[in-house]
Amino acid sequence: MGLLRQWASFVKRLVHVIAKPVKGDGSRGGMVVHPYRGYGSQREVFVMGRVFHQAALSRIIPRHGMLRDTADVARRILRRGLANAQVEVHIGENQLCVSTDRDGYFDVHLPISHALPIDVSWHRADILVHCPGESPIRTHVEVYVPPPETDLLIISDIDDTVMFTGVAEKLKMLYRLFVKKPHRRTAFPGVAALYQSLHRGVNGRAERPILYVSRGPWAIYEMLETFFQINRIPVGPILFLREWGISWHKPWPRRAKEHKRDLIDRMLTLYSDMPCILIGDSGQHDPEVYIEIVKAYPDRIKAIYIRRVDKDPQREAAIQRLRDQIVGTQCELVLAADSVLIAEHAHAQGHISAHGLAAVQRDVDDHRNDPA
């Protein structure tokens, strides 16, 4: 009976997680607009999102409980992206109108012809969506633009770099990713202090952009935002995600390696005057992708930090061979077993403060003394 209860609890929580993204419409159904946090510079900003239609919820369905969650899962499965919806984005005095693609996604590249205020980093983008047969919807989203004095860009993987997902253990990964509540998902010890230190810089007052890239689907966007906030990890524009929707014209998601490389190229082009640090893990393609980036931008990448997620000697030897390929550049690849080793190198290179290094050491020590 105990095992049966565990499985029942597993299914109940899984259904609730899958149902959560459709609950914001108050059960009315109709057109829904879901923008994702944007990013940009004083030259151009990027805002992505999706417009879709979902069915209304029957009044006989209770507002809470397993039946409501099951009905919302059905609504999520049946919802469809709205193609050719008109999306107007305004930020300051700048504006642009685009159409959604056939899956309902919009990707706005808005040139900045009227300068944005430089005394703030987060700007409000107002969004107005029109679609035939639907009532117009107004919403807004935050857009991050680094201050002019920003001295460093950080691009980080998430899976097995910020949080443990166990890519080598698929069932455990799915359990942690889709079933555990955000505050119970495992962040690596010292990650919060490390990323806060990188964000704040040596003087403790910088606002460096940290841009996160992941092979995960857009469906987990809200959960990851909550995870970052609860774990005190600086929340950057989460522009990492892939569309995993399966259809006859697109039966598989885009390859993670290509997705990551293209996004990093896009960010380095946008922030063309900033040096960069790349952070990833040893379990997938991060070292290989990052070495390609160093070769393409030999003067831009100051360090590659790779979290070691296994002790496979063949994988370590492969990473050592990759490290040898960038000897003579300004970049050093650091294969680290924990956040302290990364922080020590970052401090030695002048990227974080002594206070930041001490905070990382303290967090890791606290975890060792109280692993629960």
Rank of each mutant, 00 (worst) to 15 (best):
E142T: 08
Y36C: 08
D126M: 06
A125I: 01
S41V: 05
G92V: 12
Y297A: 06
I154V: 15
V45N: 09
I277T: 08
I319N: 04
A74S: 12
E88M: 13
K302E: 13
C276M: 03
P189M: 06
R242W: 04
V289M: 08
G38T: 09
Q86T: 08
I277G: 01
A187W: 00
P234T: 08
T100L: 09
E243S: 14
L211N: 05
T329I: 00
V360R: 02
L3Y: 12
R261G: 07
L78C: 10
L152H: 06
Q349I: 08
E44D: 00
H285G: 06
R308V: 00
V162P: 01
G30I: 05
R63K: 14
H130I: 01
S58R: 10
D281N: 08
T161C: 09
P234V: 06
H367G: 03
L322F: 08
L67A: 09
S9C: 11
V340T: 11
P313Y: 08
T329S: 12
A372Q: 14
T186C: 04
M223G: 15
F46C: 12
R242A: 05
A359T: 02
K180S: 08
D25V: 11
R59N: 13
P189G: 06
C97F: 03
G65V: 06
I319E: 02
H16F: 10
A343V: 05
L153M: 01
L57V: 09
G356D: 05
I352W: 04
V141G: 05
M48V: 11
L211R: 09
K311R: 13
A296Q: 11
Q95L: 06
R68T: 09
N94C: 06
M31V: 08
R315G: 06
G49Y: 00
V11I: 15
G24S: 13
V191I: 12
A354E: 14
G190I: 00
E222Y: 02
R43K: 15
K302S: 10
S214E: 06
R68E: 10
L4A: 15
D159I: 04
H249W: 13
C276S: 10
R315D: 03
I246N: 07
D286S: 05
R5Y: 13
F10L: 14
Y195Q: 04
I246V: 15
T161P: 07
Y212H: 10
T226K: 14
V33M: 00
A358R: 14
A359F: 02
T186V: 09
P251D: 08
